[in-house]
């Protein structure tokens, strides 16, 4: 039976470790909440990685890696849109624009970025398709997995720690009344400012993450930093369900509910 399961049971790091140890050849397909990732391996080494279908072509990767400027990128899209990645690579090398090393390094960097992104995925189904490799027209690399696995393990520990600190994203944030830090001396990054601009007890942390396009890990990391700096604290979201839910009491009558609490108070006082 093919290897398949849920990321809740096997993390991406654990899967990479298994593929590395068993020197597997094939493609790991991970269906995340929003996108599908495909990561190909040859003899336990990373060969190719992409998330979704878009932005995975060589021209796009070289452009985002600043090896092609906008006009070069547009020209390639217009004139060489029909050529595959291998042919495009050869064209660029033969034309003297780039070296083979430039192209391979750019691809490696991109694939490693994909794997790093996958480390933040905690929900999703995976399957390993034995012996399935990316199409022949795509350029493959040959990258050892050890360093990525170490990086993934480190990130996993950080993730666990952040989950301990901020167990639920369904809570809101509010600024502390007496912040422990002197605000004048606080230097916030652009991402932190983006989060800060949404802080109000009306917004849940999950809503702030959505508005700022951050994943669970990124938002937890920033919120944790702001809490540690004494700038914000976690609070119940405004407009949340009332503190006393109907299922807490055997009766819906508020008068009877109060009487019930008073009976409990009297009984415990008398013990």
């Amino acid at each position: 039976m093919a290897l398949n399961g849920n990321l809740r049971d096997f993390t991406v790091t654990q899967l990479l470790n298994l593929i590395n140890l068993a020197s597997k050849t094939g493609t790991l397909v991970i269906e995340g909440p929003n996108e599908t990732a495909q990561v190909a391996f040859r003899d336990g080494k990373l060969a190719h990685a992409m998330i979704g279908r878009e932005n995975s072509g060589l021209a796009t990767i070289l452009h985002s890696g600043k090896l092609l400027n906008v006009s070069q990128y547009r020209a390639i899209q217009q004139r060489a849109g029909h050529v595959n990645d291998k042919e495009l690579g050869l064209l660029l090398i033969n034309a003297g624009y780039l070296s083979q090393e430039d192209i391979l390094q750019s691809l490696q960097k991109n694939f490693m970025g994909v794997i790093r992104q996958l480390f933040t995925w905690v929900e999703g189904f995976f399957r390993f398709e034995n012996d399935k490799l990316p199409p022949e027209d795509q350029i493959n690399v040959r990258l050892d997995l050890e360093n990525l696995i170490i990086e993934g393990s480190r990130q996993l520990r950080e993730w666990e720690q952040l989950q301990d600190e901020i167990p639920s994203l369904e809570m809101a944030l509010k600024f502390t009344d007496r912040p422990g830090a002197d605000l004048k001396n606080v230097n916030l990054s652009v991402e932190e400012w983006r989060v800060v601009s949404y802080i109000t007890p009306k917004n849940k942390i999950s809503q702030i993450a959505k508005a700022t396009k951050m994943d669970d890990m990124e938002i937890r990391r920033i919120v944790y930093g702001l809490i540690q700096a004494g700038l914000v604290e976690i609070t119940r979201p405004e407009g949340a369900a009332p503190a006393l839910a109907p299922d807490m009491f055997p009766t819906q009558d508020t008068g009877e509910q109060k009487s019930l609490i008073n009976r409990l108070i009297n009984r415990i006082s008398s013990i």
Partner: peptide, 16 residues
Amino acid sequence: REARSILQTFRAYAPT
């Protein structure tokens, strides 16, 4: 620290 984390978890389960 763990106590604080448990407190937050329970507050998220039920705001009682």
